[in-house]
């Protein structure tokens, strides 16, 4: 009998093992479409871009691509105009993240746990509208509002006896104006992330803190932040990557002008790639931007996991 049971047990174990194996391979099979898609649309183009960055290739030339080594990277590093565009983009990113995160958190907190607030739904819907409008449409809309001759913005300024301001061609105001419009567009996203982050805080812990009458700062530090930080940092990460890629606003509103005052690196890249069709050089810039995006992600993830690593 014992032998029988043992062999049965073995058989069951073997069956379950083969079942597990089958499940695993089935799981892998399910992943094939996604992996194929990822490979075809992400890996292959990225490798292609990397390869192109070592070649001199212009789409409008009859010459085939030819290997030039690091020449495109050398040109890119020596190009002071591109360096200025990169610096400008970092400044844009920093201010955009600071403004949008601060305002987003404030708005998020305002709506948090205020379910019975009258008009909450309508207010939230209106608040999130800028985020869902196509960026090009938003940019065009603001460009028209700010037009000094026909724009409604300047019309109202005039009504109040204030002189017309042409912000989009002003050397000192064009860049801040882009920041304001970007903040108008993307603060709702950070508010949404804040609401999601605050929603992830367990009610029981909040109630306990309330019963213990902990000071607000302590509640935020010990109860809210540990839970909310992941979603909030994810929001900041997504916005950072997105802000670094901003092109539509400056293309439509100012075309990078006046002069090059609002020329962000994505716009420069667009010009090199799709206006001049200088695919080798623009691939080198793209590789650089890719590294920056990866670096940003790594930094955020590192900061985010710092505490857990220490604890481990």
């Amino acid at each position: 009998m014992g032998v029988k049971f043992a062999s049965k047990d073995k058989a069951i174990k073997a069956k379950s093992k083969s079942g597990q194996k089958g499940e695993k391979s089935f799981g892998w099979k399910l992943l094939i479409p996604v992996l194929a898609f990822f490979g075809f649309f992400n890996i292959v183009p990225t490798l292609w871009m990397l390869g192109l960055s070592f070649n001199d290739y212009k789409l409008i030339s009859s010459n085939a691509p030819h290997y030039v080594g690091l020449s495109n990277y050398q040109s890119f590093l020596a190009d002071q105009q591109v360096a200025h565009a990169v610096n400008r983009t970092f400044v844009f990113l920093a201010f955009a993240i600071i403004f949008q995160t601060t305002l987003g958190i404030l708005i998020g907190v305002l709506f948090w746990r205020n379910d019975k607030l009258r008009g909450r739904r309508l207010a939230l819907t209106l608040l999130f509208t800028p985020m869902v409008v196509t960026p090009v449409a938003s940019a065009l809309f603001w460009k028209l509002i700010l037009d000094p001759n026909f724009g409604v913005g300047n019309y109202f300024l005039q009504i109040f006896g204030i002189a017309k301001i042409d912000v989009l061609t002003s050397q000192s105001l064009a860049f801040p104006t882009l920041l304001v419009v970007d903040t108008w567009m993307w603060t709702p996203f950070m508010a949404l992330m804040t609401l999601a982050a605050l929603g992830s805080v367990p009610k029981a812990e909040l109630e306990a803190a309330s019963i213990d009458r902990l000071p607000l700062f302590t509640v935020i530090k010990t109860v809210v932040w540990p839970h909310a930080k992941f979603i909030l940092m994810l929001g900041i990460l997504l916005r950072s990557i997105d802000a670094f890629k901003t092109m539509d606003l400056s293309l439509i509103m100012t075309d990078g002008g006046p002069g090059d005052k609002t020329e962000l690196i994505a716009l420069s890249l667009y010009r090199y790639a799709f206006k001049s069709f200088n695919l080798g050089y623009s691939s080198a810039i793209s590789v650089f931007l890719l590294f920056i995006a990866i670096s940003l992600t790594s930094i955020y993830l590192y900061v985010l996991n710092l505490k857990s690593r220490k604890e481990a």
Binding site: K58, G256, G257, P258, D260, K275, S276, N278
Partner: peptide, 23 residues
């Protein structure tokens, strides 16, 4: 020339910059 686009972009940026006061 096929390079017209690159040449134009450089020139327009510089010239417009002078008009706008940034150059």
């Amino acid at each position: 020339l096929p390079e017209y686009s690159e040449m134009l972009a450089v020139q327009q940026e510089a010239f417009n910059g002078f008009a706008a006061g940034t150059v």
